[in-house]
């Protein structure tokens, strides 16, 4: 089954002469790990916003889990994202005024489906969060503390636990390792891949760091606008 399918997807921001994003064709199978390489200005943020359903499609076709995003309203895409997509930012993923546990369980408050998944598998949302945090090596002592007390590496792992809770079908990661040091990157990448395969999620990973491609089964490169201009 295809998780994400793109055909001639073009996005041009208002006031710009060139398309920021122009993808002829892209198919990502369910359960795959997919690496998208893009330098800054290559439109990767735009792509991620479109994949997450935040940005509306201007032209072309995008199907996520068989749903045609072009025909869905903002509200439908928001609900779809809540139910099916776990998202990890580059940095500062966590709400500073919530504890670690509250941050991790947040998606289950936004999506009934993910709450149900968590309860079915672990008995309760809290148990699911406990399991997720423990398997991502977050010490139990930190569960109920403020997220401000975590190291950057710990913050990213808590963010991963939040993205994974309630088994969403797709995990989108936007340079989640850029703030980590080398050892932490290795560790984070392995754990993330392993967790995704555990719940059969498709992992879409975006980075400007080409060396990370080695962790993934498939990859593509977004041409940067600079190169395009040169061509």
């Amino acid at each position: 089954m295809t998780a994400i399918s793109i055909e001639s997807l073009i996005h041009t921001w208002p006031g710009q002469s060139h398309a920021t994003l122009d993808i002829k064709e892209l198919n990502i199978n369910a359960g795959d790990t997919f690496f998208i390489h893009g330098a800054s200005g290559s439109g990767k943020s735009t792509l991620l916003n479109i994949l997450a359903g935040v940005l509306s499609i201007q032209s072309g076709k995008l199907e996520v889990l068989g749903q045609n995003f072009a025909t869905m309203s903002h509200a439908q895409r928001d609900k779809f994202r809540a139910d099916n997509i776990g998202y990890i930012f580059q940095q500062f993923n966590l709400l500073p005024y919530l504890t670690v546990m509250e941050n991790v369980t947040l998606p289950c408050h936004a999506s009934k489906q993910r709450e149900r998944n968590a309860i079915e598998q672990y008995g309760s949302v809290e148990e699911a969060a406990h399991y997720g945090l423990t398997s991502l090596n977050i010490p139990k002592a930190l569960f109920h503390t403020s997220v401000m007390r975590l190291s950057v590496g710990q913050q990213q792992r808590v963010a991963a636990a939040r993205a994974l809770i309630g088994n969403p079908s797709i995990i989108i990661a936007d340079e989640p390792t850029s703030a980590l040091d080398h050892d932490n990157i290795q560790n984070f990448m392995e754990t993330l891949k392993q967790k995704c395969s555990e719940i059969n999620s498709t992992l879409v990973f975006v980075s400007h760091d080409r060396t990370l491609a080695e962790f993934f089964g498939q990859s593509m490169t977004l041409p940067s606008r600079l190169q395009e201009a040169e061509q």
């Binding site: 997450a52 903002h74 509200a75 928001d78 809540a82 998202y87 709400l95 947040l106 998606p107 939040r162």
Partner: peptide, 9 residues
């Protein structure tokens, strides 16, 4: 972050 976890605008 709130948008990412699926809250609408």
């Amino acid at each position: 972050v709130l948008r990412a976890i699926g809250l609408s605008s």
